[in-house]
């Protein structure tokens, strides 16, 4: 297949994509503030992300003694950048910033980058709490990454392509979520994990004084906190493109359907993460490898058999 399925946007497309990503993430942060306020029986709360941003923009930058400032900065800057690079290959309805032939692998690459970025943010400050947080993330990543990779393979096998637009197009008749439920669930869990949301918050946990966040202040803290929301929003977008038919839907244009589905999945993930307690990495390891991995392999097997049968 060729790239005619979607239209590649001109140079300003990247600006628009990033703006939309930030708005979606902001909506999630505001919704989270509202729900938190509701749970604590106070009014308002939707203003929380704005107030937090203002507070951090006003805060003095802070380093620690003999810290690795460069690595710390690479880590915190990298998280929002990785999220932006993910959405670059994401087809929003009929438009995409970059119609990369290996878009799915690109997503996977950015996702693996998060390993390094979170760890660097933890290593940089030269503080025990941050360091423990950084290494905890690596332990989590060892548990979630393989199931995620196989979950990504399933739609690729069904579509016979690694191009995001082809994968969306292949769901013309039937959304992948219908016959790849395991892959979808594993994918959603992994999205929560790489955006450091509960139950995968051990790297930022209060028992290590905020872990990776423990020594961050000012704009660097803001970038890391925003990066989490941006990654979650980007992950939701990919969930829609890979499993929920992308922009497919009646009446409304593709981009509207795509955004609507993304917002719903995004808020759903935000709701889930409010309801579950945090898991320690070592609790996750055995279930992920011994239960999660075989299940997702079976899913890929089913998809592969169906793909071969459908062809033959």
């Amino acid at each position: 297949m060729n790239g005619s399925l979607v239209q590649q946007l001109p140079a300003w497309g990247a600006v628009a994509a990033l703006a939309v990503l930030v708005l979606v993430a902001l909506s999630g942060a505001a919704a989270d503030g509202l729900v938190t306020a509701r749970a604590e029986r106070r009014r308002g709360g939707g203003f929380a992300p704005v107030a937090e941003t203002a507070r951090l923009l006003r805060q003095r930058p802070r380093g620690t003694v003999a810290a690795d400032t460069l690595l710390r900065r690479v880590g915190v800057v990298g998280l929002p950048v990785a999220a932006a690079l993910k959405v670059a290959v994401l087809p929003v309805g009929a438009w995409v910033v970059s119609d990369l032939a290996v878009g799915l692998v690109w997503f996977n690459t950015m996702d693996v980058m998060v390993w390094a970025l979170v760890w660097l943010s933890g290593w940089g400050p030269n503080s025990v709490h941050s360091l423990v947080g950084g290494y905890r993330f690596l332990a989590l990543a060892l548990a979630y990454e393989l199931p995620l990779m196989f979950a990504l393979t399933a739609p690729a096998v069904a579509a016979g392509s690694l191009r995001m637009a082809d994968i969306v197009a292949a769901q013309d008749g039937l959304w992948f979520v219908v016959w790849m439920p395991v892959a979808f669930l594993v994918f959603c869990a992994a999205v929560l994990a790489f955006s450091l949301q509960r139950p995968f918050t051990a790297p930022l946990s209060p028992d290590i004084a905020g872990g990776v966040l423990a020594e961050l202040s000012g704009v660097e803290r803001l970038l890391l906190l925003a990066g989490r929301y941006l990654l979650l929003a980007a992950g939701s977008g990919f969930g829609v493109a890979l499993f929920l038919g992308g922009g497919a839907g009646p009446v409304l244009p593709g981009w509207a359907w795509f955004l609507a589905k993304t917002l719903v999945l995004f808020w759903l993930l935000l709701t889930i993460r409010r309801r579950v307690p945090a898991l320690r990495p070592e609790q996750l390891m055995a279930p992920a490898w011994v239960v999660g991995l075989p299940l997702i392999l079976l899913q890929v097997l089913v998809v592969a058999v169906a793909a071969v049968a459908g062809k033959g």
Binding site: G3, V15, P80, L85, L100, A101
Partner: peptide, 25 residues
Amino acid sequence: MSAYLGLAMSLLVAVAGVAGLYALH
């Protein structure tokens, strides 16, 4: 080719956005 241009633009825009935040800070 233009696919990579889009990626490069995205990287540029994201880095510029972060730089803007740093400047604002």
